[in-house]
Computed example of a mutant assay.
Amino acid sequence: MIQLRNLNKVYKGAQGEFHAVKDLNLDIREDDFYGIMGLSGAGKSTLIRMINRLEEPTSGEIVVNGENILEYSEGKLREFRKKTGMIFQHFNLLQSRTVEGNVAFALEVAGWDKKKIPERVEELLNLVELGDKARSYPAQLSGGQKQRVAIARALANNPKILLSDEATSALDPKTTKSILELLKNLQEKLGLTIVLITHQMEVIRSACNRAAIMDRGEVVEVGKVEEVFANPKTDIAREFVSHLAPDEKDEVELVKVPGRKIVKLSYMGRSVEKPLISQMIRRFDIDASIVAGSIDKLVTESVGHLILELSGEKQDLAIEWIRDHEVGVEVIYNG
């Protein structure tokens, strides 16, 4: 649905050029809940703002449903933006308007028939579970309620694409969870494609089916969320998921023994539910002590990590056997 091809954004300033996005290629499919993650300055906000041309690329292509939107006329771009909703970290609500007035504003700007606006506003507020706050002002709302108003406003013109620019960063964990649940429900109900940027791996874990990790303007890792969690390939990805997996560096120092191996297992999906460790112990007559472990339930799969200390004559055979069962194995100490 959205194809980003050789996308670049270069800012020119007194200190010279700053390459915010570098030769970026990304494919976002219809109905994806796509997470783009990176540290501050990684280029993720610039990237998402280029998707609806709030930022103009320096070069490259943005292809949506087969059309390069960089070739759109001003009128066609306005129509495209109507079908591309956007929500922001700081809500961007009009303080002088009520909740219903804020949502109505998006419809007024889009040229809706004034007689149809009240009904549409009511429908949208019910959709985000704020029907009882229609006549409240933003100052009277919690952060989560403000974001729900912003979501309702973003959905006013029946968009097919919803862009989220750090929409949960200003919220506490409990409210973040409720907003992500709302977005997932809306995606399913309305058939949305959602592109979300964040610096919080918990957000990716809770909501997304696919993810890309950015570093210094480049996409350094991309794939299904469970693949990124189970087997991160880059240092930045490993850093992001490290709090969800045991820290082998700290734990391994405690158990290094000559003649024994310490291995890290990464597994997903049905492998999480199988008693592979107990089968391995019986089959190869070895001992396996669990040093650390975790299982995380993601949107599409469960992902597990275990660090084991192995002892016995058939350690190598046991490792090869468990690899054959679609479990990632990394030997982190070979005594």
Rank of each mutant, 00 (worst) to 15 (best):
V109P: 06
G38M: 05
E71F: 06
F105Y: 13
L107N: 02
A207Q: 01
D250G: 07
S178C: 02
V257I: 13
Q315G: 01
L298V: 06
K44E: 00
I194Q: 08
K44F: 00
T168C: 12
V303S: 09
K297C: 10
G101P: 08
L26E: 13
T198F: 00
Q95N: 11
E79V: 04
P57C: 15
R205P: 05
V63M: 02
K314V: 04
A212P: 10
A154W: 14
R78F: 00
K264N: 07
K174A: 07
E30H: 09
L244H: 12
S142C: 10
I179R: 05
D165N: 05
A167K: 04
L4W: 00
L163Q: 15
P232I: 03
I36L: 05
P159L: 14
I69S: 09
F80H: 04
S206W: 08
S142I: 15
Q200I: 09
S96N: 12
L125Y: 04
L171K: 11
L94W: 11
V121Y: 14
A211M: 14
A139D: 10
I28E: 08
E122T: 11
K83E: 13
R97E: 05
Q187R: 09
F284M: 03
G85K: 08
L276M: 03
R120P: 04
K224Y: 06
T300M: 02
E251C: 13
V220E: 09
P232C: 14
E218G: 06
A156E: 08
G85V: 02
N65R: 13
L162P: 09
G217I: 14
A134N: 04
L317Y: 04
S302M: 14
N102Y: 08
D132I: 02
E119D: 10
G293D: 06
R5N: 10
H19I: 00
G60Y: 01
G85M: 07
A156I: 02
L171C: 07
I194W: 04
E227Y: 00
C208G: 10
L94Q: 04
V225Y: 01
G43E: 00
N8P: 12
K264T: 12
D132S: 08
L308A: 14
E100I: 03
V10N: 11
R120W: 00
E56K: 06
D32M: 02
D31C: 12
S40A: 09
S73T: 15
G111V: 05
G223N: 12
G335Q: 08
L308F: 03
A42Y: 08
I286E: 13
D296V: 15
L317H: 12
K177C: 06
N334C: 05
V252E: 09
V222W: 05
G85Y: 01
V203N: 14
K133C: 15
G13T: 14
V21D: 14
G13D: 14
Q187T: 06
E56Q: 08
F240M: 08
Y34G: 12
E227L: 06
L26I: 09
I69V: 10
A167F: 02
L130R: 04
S136G: 06
L171F: 02
G191T: 01
V255H: 12
L317K: 13
E79W: 07
L77C: 09
P138E: 06
D215M: 04
L107C: 02
E248W: 14
A42C: 11
G38N: 10
L94P: 07
S136R: 13
F91Y: 14
N8S: 12
L306E: 09
I179Q: 11
K114Q: 07
L4A: 13
A139K: 10
E71R: 12
M280H: 07
